[in-house]
């Protein structure tokens, strides 16, 4: 195994998980602010338990899937997933669509929960549960995707767990959404890396012998970065124009 594939896998898992964990934290904090920590914590714990169950049940099945088929399926899904992130990050960087604002998402979340004050706390817990489950599923997919076929599950999982732990600790200490994280820059970088992995795995799944083997991923990432940067410049909205 080369460092060229090890480092992108770990960093892709870490950075992508960082973004997902921040989004989940924003909703959990919104629930905690309006309804208290009990429904927020219970919902988040139930979401984590559901995730653990899904991983425990479906994880062993991955070993039964033929490697080439697994690489192809993961590659196609990674391409769809990574290009979706990259497209959105390009449009945000160019000012075509507004940047994702965690402070605004937090304000919207708390306002929505305050509108339903008369309802039971379990609805608030459900919001927390759904956020943790859905964002967590994205993290699980990324770990599977970047770890598939090369025995990188452990380092990718470590990267993802490190990011989730970091965000959980920061959220616990600060008690407010992590609005200063350059989320679009992270999404841009992760979109580039996931798209590069997607091209590599799809090719491997189709039986392509990439020149340079694993090192090809670094070259693909460079090309995606270049094209994405060019696209962002080409579609950049003039300063002062309405988004």
């Amino acid at each position: 195994m080369t460092w060229a594939i090890y480092a992108p896998a770990v960093s892709a898992a870490f950075l992508a998980s960082l973004v997902e964990a921040i989004e989940a934290l924003t909703i959990v904090l919104a629930v905690a602010t309006v309804r208290g920590w009990r429904p927020a914590g219970l919902g988040a714990a139930a979401g984590l338990a559901s995730l653990a169950l899904i991983v425990a049940v479906l994880g062993p099945l991955l070993d039964r899937v033929p490697l080439q088929l697994l690489q192809l399926v993961i590659g196609v899904l990674l391409l769809l997933f990574g290009m979706r992130w990259l497209r959105k990050a390009i449009l945000r960087a160019a000012g075509v669509i507004p940047l994702h604002d965690e402070a605004a998402a937090f304000a919207a979340g708390t306002a929505e929960l305050r509108e339903h004050r008369s309802r039971l706390d379990w609805l608030a817990g459900l919001a927390s549960f759904k956020a943790v489950l859905l964002e967590g599923l994205e993290v699980v997919f990324i770990v599977i995707a970047v770890g598939a076929g090369r025995g990188l599950f452990l380092p990718a999982s470590a990267g993802a767990l490190g990011a989730c732990g970091l965000v959980a600790i920061a959220g616990f200490i600060l008690h407010r959404p992590l609005a200063r994280v350059p989320e679009n820059a992270l999404k841009f970088a992760v979109g580039v890396m996931l798209s590069a992995f997607g091209v590599f795995w799809t090719g491997e799944g189709l039986g392509v012998a990439w020149p340079g083997a694993d090192l090809a991923i670094v070259g693909f990432a460079g090309l995606f970065l270049l094209v994405a940067a060019l696209a962002a410049v080409a579609v950049r909205r003039p300063v002062g124009a309405a988004p």
């Binding site: 391409l79 290009m83 990259l86 497209r87 390009i90 798209s195 997607g198 091209v199 799809t202 090719g203 189709l206 039986g207 392509v208 012998a209 990439w210 020149p211 693909f220 090309l223 995606f224 094209v227 994405a228 696209a231």
Partner: peptide, 15 residues
């Protein structure tokens, strides 16, 4: 590697 070139160039163009 022809299929690989198709995937790479195609994905970049589509993006």
């Amino acid at each position: 590697t022809t299929a690989g070139v198709v995937i790479l160039a195609g994905s970049l163009f589509v993006l």
